[in-house]
């Protein structure tokens, strides 16, 4: 019933927001459960991506109509998020590299040297 309505009814902002929510949750769970440093990074990417889906949906003229949509602001914000995500990935990778060179593993549980 719900599945059939997915292909027979027009898509709205809510559909996109649910996709964004799923990506966001997947990213959060990924960040929480991965022991691999790169896995945590991928979780961050997923979270940012979920946020992007929301920006695009809110700004899309197709989903809300021109009057209700926030116009290009959504797309511009998404662009800034993408660029910041690239910057974040660069720094995080440099940190990961340093971490690996220091402790010779990429298990985040090994990063406990600051423990008092």
């Amino acid at each position: 019933m719900i599945l059939a309505s997915l292909v027979t009814e027009p898509v709205g902002v809510a559909h996109y927001l649910i996709v964004g929510a799923v990506l966001f949750i997947a990213g959060i769970v990924c960040m929480a459960t991965k022991r691999n440093l790169l896995g945590v990074l991928m979780g961050v990417e997923l979270v940012l991506n979920g946020a992007n889906v929301n920006f695009i949906a809110i700004g899309s003229p197709y989903l809300r109509g021109d009057a209700a949509s926030v116009g290009l602001d959504g797309q511009l914000m998404a662009l800034f998020v993408i660029v910041l995500a690239a910057a974040e990935a660069a720094v995080a990778l440099a940190i990961a590299l340093n971490f690996y060179n220091t402790v010779h593993t990429i298990d985040v549980d090994a990063a406990d040297q600051l423990r008092g």
Binding site: V11, Y16, V19, L23, L38, L41, M42, E45, N49, N52, V53, I56, A57, G59, S60, P61, Y62, L63, G74, Q75, A78, L79, I82, V83, A85, A86, A89, L93
Partner: peptide, 28 residues
């Protein structure tokens, strides 16, 4: 997700996503 962006009418952001995000993930 970039396909979703194309569907929402944000083709520039979609291509940007393909180029930067997916390229960045390649580095990962």
């Amino acid at each position: 997700t970039s396909g979703l962006f194309f569907l929402a009418g944000a083709d520039f952001v979609g291509a940007m996503q393909l180029m930067i995000y997916v390229g960045g993930t390649l580095v990962l």
